[in-house]
Amino acid sequence: MGKGLKAKSMQHAVRDGNMQVLSVVLVLISIGCIVGPIGDVVLMYRNNLPGLVIPPQINNLMNGNKNNNQGNDNNNNINNYNNSNYNNSDNNNNNNGNNGFITPTFVSSQINNAAKTFTVTVNVTNSFGYDLTLNSMNATVESSTDNYQLGTITLTSPVTIIAGQIALVTVSGMWTQDAVNYVQNNFSGATSINVNLADISIDVNGIVVQQTQPVNVGNVPLT
């Protein structure tokens, strides 16, 4: 009986020992799974620890290096395209890539006096290196002298401008009879009127930029 108890206790001891080994293995698995990859990455970036949390793209932005090589290539392509296709236009086209992400260039305009509407078509160059969609654009046209509302302008239809390419954007506007009366009463004999654009709202790819402060757009011919 004593021998039996001894054997039983030995078996229990072996089992407890195995259990402890298993526990240790499980703990090692836990630690290894966590420490292994993180330790590897820390070792890889040991000479550049900020690089662990700041990827190169963000680092470039922080250093003010906004244009990568691809962006420069796009700009060059745009400039080449402009040079080859717009030789007869003014020289502003040649600098489109350097003026900003989107550079409008006047193409044509139409005025319908009977319907009191007009359309203006501009060439827009996307030098951003990413497809942009102009979803909407609205503004109110005001007289710059007393902020009298003359009319409104809106984007005719949403336009997608492919990265590095040029698209035609058409903006339509209308004026009211009150605006006609206002001009006749206050600017009789004038050939042009200085106007502001107010309440400008532009939606590009769902980013809505609204400017409450009026923007002067210069003199608009009345005849």
Binding site: P37, I38, D40, V41, V42, G51, L52, P55
Partner: peptide, 10 residues
């Protein structure tokens, strides 16, 4: 982000 990539791997 390299550190987050390592945490994902973990």
């Amino acid at each position: 982000i390299p550190l987050i990539f390592a945490m994902n791997l973990s």
